[in-house]
Design a protein around this nucleic acid. Structure first.
Lengths: 193, 193
DNA sequence: TCGTTAAGGTACGGTCCGTACCGTACCGTA
DNA sequence: TACGGTACGGTACGGACCGTACCTTAACGA
């Protein structure tokens, strides 16, 4: 990838840059995302990057979109407790794990640019809430959860607690006992109330 | 403060540096915390800083301790709902507000140094959980909350939800309706279950 | 009084962001 | 096939900042 035979242009080059940036994000996090390294990895130079994104933060957000593109498939075990645990474990152990560190870095890196921040927030919210709403919907249908549990802020409480664990402790993986505690002490009592 | 008459030494100088760093943190956040600016503001130079703290992150954490030193006084209105709302509003509007942005910046800035991270986590946890445990304790005594609500992870759910709002949206102030929603949709149902 | 300690001053290497400039390959069009 | 515009590659640079080195100078203690 370092020295392509033919000179790439337009979309092809843009996607090569994004892929390189996403890889760098996954490896070194946002603080380690260097324009020169991305350019080198993509087999191009900084010019090609700055013609497409105004600064490092914008590139980071765009690359994060590539990194966290795969939405979680909501599990369906027939029990709310198992569904919730499965979702948490997927977020915890799965490939989404490095995304937490990246997200943490980006949240500070974007500074006070509202556009980028909005993109990030949508990315983090949209990709996160949907599967939770799905499992809660089924739980309500089974009579396992009260109808009010379909409120997004209620349905995603477990996700927020786990994310808080990521953000404040700075770990890339949380102990499984914490996940169980979140579900048994908070999530199930809240939804069943 | 820029050019003191007599040359300060030891503790006096150290505290001047910490105060300057805390001020810079409050004004420009962690990304804007520059060693040269801190030195200039404290009326000294970078040498005096690097003799006391090994790097910028360590100085940032130490200064944050100065910034967020004042713990919240738990309110006592006689009703759990009002107590919780008062706490949230104090965190939201009060002087603790810039601390959220600073904390967000520090959480990335400390990188992978476990010592600093532990200090930060203690600072954020200790200062935050105590008042919540206090108001929940009284609510349980009044029969407003179930005994299991005294679990720290349960008692601080509202705080975590608000912090999540700070961290992901990047705002320094959250709309009051969000606070009410957190309390009415999540916190009260959870504690009363 | 004098030596030790810690302060101030300054300069430097290194890294990285963002910009500028210029030569050059690709592409559509005639 | 010739041509001209557009976009890419290479490189160099200014500026900001971190962290370090070295020297001078003031404060303190014996």
């Amino acid at each position: 990838m370092a020295t392509p035979k033919t000179r790439r242009r337009g979309t092809e080059l843009a996607e090569a840059i994004l892929r390189a940036a996403a890889d760098e994000l996954a490896e070194a996090g946002y603080p380690g995302l260097t324009m020169e390294r991305v350019a080198q990895r993509a087999g191009t130079n900084k010019n090609a990057i700055y013609r497409r994104w105004p600064n490092r933060a914008a590139l980071g957000v765009a690359a994060y979109r590539h990194l966290a593109a795969d939405a979680l498939e909501p599990p369906d075990t027939g029990h709310l407790r198992e569904d919730a645990l499965a979702l948490l474990r997927a977020i915890n152990c799965g490939q989404t794990s490095p995304a937490a560190r990246v997200l943490r870095g980006l949240l500070t890196g974007v500074g006070d640019e509202p556009e980028l921040r909005e993109q990030l927030h949508q990315q983090a919210a949209e990709g996160g809430t949907k599967p939770w709403l799905a499992i809660v919907e089924r739980a309500v249908a089974r009579g396992e959860a009260r109808p009010g549990a379909r409120h997004p802020r209620v349905a995603t409480v477990a996700l927020v607690l786990l994310r808080n664990e990521f953000l404040t402790r700075g770990l890339t993986t949380v102990d499984d006992a914490v996940l169980v505690e979140i579900v048994d002490e908070v999530y199930l009592p809240l939804l069943g109330a």
